[in-house]
């Protein structure tokens, strides 16, 4: 096996995405346009960013049950504080990223179960969001709205953004030196420590980066929706975990794929809109996401078995 050969297993996120996209185009050819593509995918941008945040946590063998509540809290801050007092707003967002980093250090310093700590954090983030915003509302900062409705030449904003997110995450996690070290945490943290790294610092960095992606998710969400509420992104927790796994990531061992994860997030949202084009009741929208998840993972099992046989 040569170094550059790509196994079918790694191509699976791309294949499943392409199948759903072609099916969508076949059913509704007007989706195959500048406007159509933007409508299909623009609400996926915040989900893709949250998915990268989740991917960073899963990469170090943890899981983050607070993503949805965190992104909702960011959205609440962006649509109120950031509009009224920009400096205070940015300070609050920076504080949230630092809190995430501190959480990562804390979890690993005391060897706490991340699933329970992030569960507790989801109550804290959710409570803070309710304090800031007891009822849905708020507005988007002008510049953010302008940024999210920009019309780049050639490809619509949603597609450009998805490409940018995938490329940036790929460079950061798969290509950069520090990304390789962080992936090593999930593979074998002890050997990373032996190589002279301070583990709590690395975990803090991983969680901090996840916090940055969570903040970006909240920012883009407000730019698209132009308003927010305390539970606006509550579905993101489960969607982000599903996206990471759909993209070829695994819970143990630091095996993740940022490009796959972005494709996974896009695939999940396509699964929902495909039903509308098939004139199937929107009742099944969530179910379709579950079905796609099961089908793709079943296909992955087939590929893995064949690889094992070869």
């Amino acid at each position: 096996m040569t170094r550059h050969s790509i196994s079918p297993r790694k191509l699976l996120p791309l294949i499943s995405f392409s199948v759903l996209l072609i099916a969508t185009f076949a059913l509704q050819e007007r989706a195959m346009s500048y406007l159509g593509l933007n409508l299909l995918f623009n609400l996926t941008i915040p989900i893709a960013l949250a998915t990268i945040g989740q991917l960073l946590i899963i990469m170090v063998n943890d899981i983050d049950l607070s993503v949805g509540a965190f992104v909702s809290l960011v959205a609440c801050i962006v649509s109120t504080l950031l509009v009224q007092h920009p400096w205070l707003g940015w300070l609050a967002l920076a504080g949230l990223v630092l809190a995430y980093a501190a959480l990562g250090a804390l979890i690993h310093r005391f060897d706490l179960p991340a699933i329970v700590v992030t569960l507790g954090m989801s109550f804290i983030w959710g409570g803070l969001a309710l304090v800031i915003m007891p009822a849905p509302g708020g507005t988007s900062p002008e510049w953010l709205r302008a940024l999210m409705t920009v019309k780049p030449p050639l490809a619509p904003m949603a597609v450009v953004a998805a490409l940018l997110i995938a490329a940036a995450a790929h460079l950061l996690i798969m290509r950069s030196g520090i990304g390789t070290v962080l992936r090593g945490l999930g593979g074998n943290s002890r050997s990373v420590a032996r190589a002279g790294w301070r583990l709590s610092g690395l975990y803090a960095l991983t969680y901090g980066l996840a916090g940055v992606f969570g903040v970006l998710a909240g920012l883009t969400l407000v730019g698209l929706y132009t308003s927010s509420g305390a539970s606006v992104a509550s579905s993101y927790t489960l969607l982000s975990i599903a996206g990471v796994i759909l993209g070829g990531g695994e819970f143990i061992g630091g095996r993740v794929s940022p490009i796959g994860a972005v494709l996974g997030a896009l695939t999940l949202s396509l699964a929902g809109s495909l039903l509308a084009f098939m004139h199937i009741s929107p009742d099944w929208q969530i179910g379709a996401q579950g079905a796609v998840l099961i089908l793709v993972l079943a296909a992955r099992l087939l590929f893995t078995r064949r690889e094992a046989l070869l």
């Binding site: 507790g120 954090m121 109550f123 804290i124 959710g126 409570g127």
Partner: peptide, 14 residues
């Protein structure tokens, strides 16, 4: 209020 109740619940769990 509801927000403070949730936050304290989270603090207690952790």
């Amino acid at each position: 209020d509801a927000g403070a109740r949730m936050m304290l619940t989270g603090v207690i769990i952790i």
